[in-house]
């Protein structure tokens, strides 16, 4: 089965992020990341010796970069409009980065096809890729778990957005052929 082509991120998201306040966004992303860490403790354990590396996540079709510092299990995320300093950098379309988190794409295939570019500490990037792959994250479910009575609305909205844009918003269902 060939890898699906990576869809384009909606331009509206880029327009919003051009003016969105970054401090509240960074605080929200940090809180979200810590919530994920609590629900998936193996995620940071798998980083091992790389759990103090600063990762720069660069969605090339959005006007921000994310600097993720795992801090040995107490992660922080900073959203920046300029360049981010870090030891390891992963650049690619936002949809590719989201698809990797959800296991919709194979990271090596995206790398060989040049959809993803990695720079800096390759070992740390590999550890992060493997840790995320093993955690089987579903970001829509994670947000829904924080949303109390609004969880079903969150999931429906995510499913609608995925249908409209093709961007992976949730973990795809496995094809249980056997």
């Amino acid at each position: 089965m060939p890898q699906p082509q990576v869809p384009h991120c909606p331009a509206a998201l880029a327009r919003i992020l051009r003016v969105a306040p970054l401090v509240p966004l960074s605080l929200a992303l940090t809180a979200f990341c810590r919530h994920i860490g609590k629900r998936h403790p193996g995620l940071f354990r798998r980083l091992g010796e790389h759990s103090r590396v600063r990762f720069v996540l660069n969605p090339v079709d959005l006007p921000i970069m994310l600097c993720l510092a795992p801090n040995g299990g107490a992660p922080t995320v900073r959203a920046l409009r300029g360049n981010c300093e870090g030891e390891a950098r992963i650049s690619g379309p936002f949809a590719a980065l989201l698809g990797l988190v959800h296991g919709a794409y194979d990271g090596d295939a995206l790398f060989f096809s040049r959809d993803l570019v990695i720079e800096g500490d390759t070992g740390a990037v590999l550890a992060l890729r493997n840790a995320v792959d093993d955690a089987e994250l579903d970001l829509s479910q994670e947000i829904a778990a924080l949303s109390g009575p609004f969880s079903s609305i969150i999931l429906q909205t995510a499913a609608f957005a995925e249908r409209r844009t093709g961007v992976s918003m949730a973990r795809p269902e496995e094809d249980l052929a056997w």
């Binding site: 194979d106 990271g107 090596d108 295939a109 792959d133 093993d134 094809d175």
Partner: peptide
Amino acid sequence: QRSKSYVAQ
């Protein structure tokens, strides 16, 4: 060394 997605496919 490849991903879960690769293995499944």
